[in-house]
Structure formats: C-alpha cells, structure tokens
C-alpha cells in the first residue's frame, strides 16, 4: 500500500502520472485508427521526423513542442501529398521522407558542442522530468486531439472502412486523410516527453493491437485500447519508479507484456478447446 501511495507525495510523480495517463489515452484513441488502416510505419516515420524540429527549437530557444509540432505535422502532410500526387506508394513516400528528416535531426544535433541531456531525453523520453508548463501544453494538445476525434469518429470510421463508399456519399475522404495525418502528428508530439521518439510507435499500436485480439466491435476496440493503454502506462510508471529504471521503456514493456499475455492466453484457450467449432455463420 505504502509502495503505491508514497510516490504520490511528490509533485513530479503526480505530474508524470497525469502525463502518462493522458498520453496513453490519446495514443490509444488515435492508434485505433492507425491499426485499422494498417499504417503503423506512419507513426514511426512521423515521430522520427519530429527530431529535427526539436533540435532547431532547442538551438533557437523555442519551446520544444513548437518545433516538434511544426516538423511532425509538416512531414505528415508532405507524406500525404507525395503519396497522393507523386505517383508513389505511401510506404515508399514515408521511407524517403522520414529517413531524410531524421538524418537532418542527427546532423543538426551533431553541430551542438558539449553534452545535451535535454535532447537525449527526447529519444527515449523522460516523463518524470515534465515541468508544470509542459504538462499544461500537453493537456491542451491532448484534449484538442480527443475533441476532433469525438466530433468526427463516424466520418473517420466510414472513410477507414470503405473510402470509396464514403467518398461517393459525400464524406470528404481526402480532407479527412490529411486531418488524420495531422492528428497522428499531434499525438506523437504529445507523447514525445513520455516515451520519446524511438518508442512512441508502441504507444500508438500496442494497446489497439491488444484490444483487437479480444473484440471485433469498433467501439469496444477503441474503449479497450484506452483502458489497456492507461492501465499499462500507470503500472509501467510505478514499476520504473520502484526499480529506478527508464520510465518510457518500462511503460512500453508493460504494454508489450500485456499484448503477449493476451495472445498467449488466447492461443492456449484455443488449443485446449474440446472440439474445433468453426465460427461459421449459418447460411
């Protein structure tokens, strides 16, 4: 009991707890669409592309969120544009843009003389160091992303499931595509401080992927992803505090372990089932 309550006496832990819970909620909601579209690679790309923005913001003394947001949203929209107009497949466009953007970040980073702990924490996250001001910015961005999804979940769902049918009936599918890319970019910016550039894709994908193992209904999928995301983030943060290890990595490990447990349980239950009853619908 003491183990759970004791860290709550510290302001930095409370802030970290709030940030982790919010981040995992936003990533789970947006990640549901990412998983359904099969664009996990996109999350990875946009997060890496945020790196040069962070470095530039540091160099000119701007808040890191601003630099990350400009770089991430810019890259996301560029990916959308190139894959639509350039006659390239989307994964090709992503590969070209994100490697280039990340290289630019590393290049700029290497021009900084001396040891820069702040930047390093963006690669792997440092949620325990989050400042009150950063937390406020994170809440504003996170609430904005959730509000947009709450307003457009129907349209996003229709456009994801059947883009042709949706477009033909008057849903602005192309504009939603750009909006979706923008949402993924902002979600990643929100998550940077919690888990860092390298691991943020896990926050997007793993909770939704875990929920997809247990339900075939859209609303339950999103709800399940949110619950799994928040619970694992809180658990991961506590574990990292108790063991005094990296918080971002511990949160991601908690999510991965949950996924593995659910998958293992399902396979085991499937193997132990007495007779193989195929879930075929009656004609």
């Amino acid at each position: 009991m003491n183990l759970v309550l004791e860290p709550l006496a510290y302001g930095f832990f409370l802030r970290a707890l709030a940030a982790s819970a919010l981040v995992s909620l936003v990533t789970a909601v947006v990640g549901t669409y990412v998983v359904l579209r099969g664009v996990a690679f996109l999350g990875d790309a946009i997060s890496h592309a945020a790196f040069p923005g962070v470095v530039v913001a540091y160099l000119v003394g701007f808040p890191f969120y601003l630099g990350a947001a400009v770089a991430a949203v810019g890259t996301a929209l560029a990916i959308g544009y190139v894959s639509k107009r350039g006659g390239l497949r989307q994964d090709t466009a992503i590969g070209v843009l994100f490697a280039g953007a990340f290289a630019l970040g590393v290049f700029l980073f290497s021009t900084i003389k001396g040891y820069v702990a702040d930047l390093f924490s963006f690669l792997f996250g440092q949620v325990l160091a989050i400042s009150p001001a950063d937390l406020v910015g994170l809440v504003v961005l996170g609430v904005a992303v959730i509000a947009v999804v709450a307003a457009l979940w129907k349209e996003l769902l229709y456009a994801t499931f059947d883009p042709l049918g949706a477009a033909a009936s008057g849903i602005a599918v192309e504009r939603l595509e750009y909006l979706f890319l923008g949402l993924v970019a902002l979600t990643i910016v929100v998550s940077l401080q919690a888990v860092g550039i390298i691991l943020v894709v896990a926050m997007l994908i793993t909770p939704a992927a875990t929920a997809q193992l247990v339900t075939a209904r859209f609303t339950r999928l999103m709800l399940g992803a949110a619950v799994i995301g928040v619970v694992t983030a809180v658990a991961g943060l506590y574990i990292s505090y108790w063991l005094d290890v990296a918080s971002g990595a511990t949160i991601v490990l908690a999510q991965t372990a949950t996924f593995a447990l659910v998958l293992g349980y399902q396979r085991l239950a499937h193997a132990l089932r007495p007779s193989p009853v195929a879930p075929e619908a009656e004609a």
Binding site: F161, A166, Q212, A216, R217
Partner: peptide, 12 residues
C-alpha cells in the same frame, strides 16, 4: 475490419 452488420448499415 471490426464492425458489425449494424455498424455497416448505420454508415449509410
């Protein structure tokens, strides 16, 4: 795709 019959028709 994780949608039910009802979900699909509701999209209309």
């Amino acid at each position: 795709f994780p949608v039910t019959v009802e979900d699909v028709v509701a999209m209309g």
